[in-house]
Nucleic acid binder design. Sequence first.
RNA 1: GGGCACGUGGCCUAGCCUGGAUAGGGCAAUAGCCUCCUAAGCUAUAGAUCAGGGGUCCAAAUCCCCUCGUGCCCGCCA
Length: 548
Amino acid sequence: MLLFDDIRESIIQTCKTIVPDLSGKDLEIDRSGHADFSLKLFRFSGRKDFPQLKNNILSALQKEKHISSASLEGNYLNINIKERTYLDIMDTSIKEKGIFPDIFQDPERVLVEHTSTNPTGPIHIGRTRNSIVGDSLSRILKRYGYRVSTQYFVNDTGKQVIGLYLGYLSSENKSMEIENLLSGYRRIYKEIEEDKSREKDIEALIKKYESGEEAVVRQVREICTVMLNGIISSLARIGIKIDDYVWESGFLKSQEMDSIMSSLAESIQTEEGAQYIELKNGTKVFLRRADGTSLYTLRDLAYHKFKSLNYDWLIDVLGEDHKDYSRSLNEILTEKVDLRAVVSFVFYSFISLDTGKMSTRSGNVVTLDELIEKAEENAMGIVKAKRPDLSAEGLGKIAQAVAVSAIRFQIAKISLGKELVFKWSEALNLEGDSAPYIMYSYARTTKIQKEALSNGEITDKYDQYERSLLRMLYLYPYSLQAAKDGLRVDPIASYVLELVRSFNDFYNNCRVIGSGEHESKRARIVSIYRNVLQDACGLLGITLLDEM
RNA sequence: GGGCACGUGGCCUAGCCUGGAUAGGGCAAUAGCCUCCUAAGCUAUAGAUCAGGGGUCCAAAUCCCCUCGUGCCCGCCA
């Protein structure tokens, strides 16, 4: 059910007067170029009165006020909507509400947890998929009317982070700089590979840390803060700002953890002193080590409990490696802990490099900063060549917008289940299905917007390009809904590309300025285009510029 | 071994949930288009046994089963 004034609904109502058991599914958006919408009549073809039925629906539809034409082709009933209807619905919505579609306000409070990468180094492009998806998803839900917040769960406990701390302790250079901390971290993990007993030093430190030894706690926090600030500023460069940062160490001796443990009390079993609970499929989920220190699952359960106090719907954006883990977590949350909030998980597959899996520890990574820098440099070269008339400042502004938008779009457009292999040549390509392609089509409308006359009479003559563009614009809410329902970002990206393609057809075939009787009508179509494109690009983090 | 994903022209990808009319795009290739609102654009050509096999159905890229290939998970890591 779409939440705007949908003409599809009124068509279905009309059809129902003839065939009461018709449903919304029978009327689909046509993708094959036959019509705007098509009614599939296959499932009624067995009826004795089928020929009569077809004709009855046809004549009922021909009288419908929004329909310009309806015709039978085999078992399809093809329907075209009046161009003026499209134009008026969108025009009115934008004039009166400033937005199309004007959808509902849902009071649900939603928390999107994303990124949450270990603060053990700069964020790399693999993790960036998490951030981009999480950020766009929260924008989509906000656009839908939910009250949305975003949160980053900062992992400042456990082996990785303590390993980072040990690296710091055992290196001569005590500067709190990212590069220095990172090299200490890498050195420690090399040492562990060669000599497993080094892990004991980490375990000993974890114990000190969890027991709250002041100097340890303070220094770990300090190191994590340095790393986290690096990640925060990298993300800021691509337009991502996370509302809250919640430190995992805060749950070590928390009310939430106690509450979880008491909810689970009856199910807890022990094995050589370690505490675990058993799931329905027999999996053992460990909560505490034999030495009493907590495990990630327990802290994560406490964190979910905490989130559920303030939100109705929790959305976790996670790598596909967390699938089984999340299933276990969810089983515990729904069946053993009485969590009020609904929890949804969004999984994405990994981004790898030509050289294999990405890893901060091994150094086989492309960091987000590296990508941004190369992308900006690349964009700058192109803008310079195309716009020799602009000042350095103007060039920089465009190059930056192009680089950031391109990075975000390249990731957002791919559906989450697909594994990605990062290739520089593709990342730096700014033609075809890329953000600049979209941005460019917007920039071309600027002069039209400024100079075309838009308040004259509107003719009733529409050509195929105007008609297709109007229809594409009208279909925007359907993509919004697909994105929201599936917790996906790529439907918006696909839609935007299709919309831009449709606009380019229009632009190349329909002159606006000085087109006489067509000018007002076309100017209004362009104006709606700018509005919808801006809306959709806002969800994807694509910056639209008036010139480029 | 068990579980979860993914497999669409040389490369990348949409469509799959909710089966239906000629499988959309892009990159790379070839040939064109700037006296006309920005050529980061547009047009045309070439390129696909929708991994393979079986099944259901009037109808399968789409649903079901099997096989193969790839990735991920199966820790007192996070």
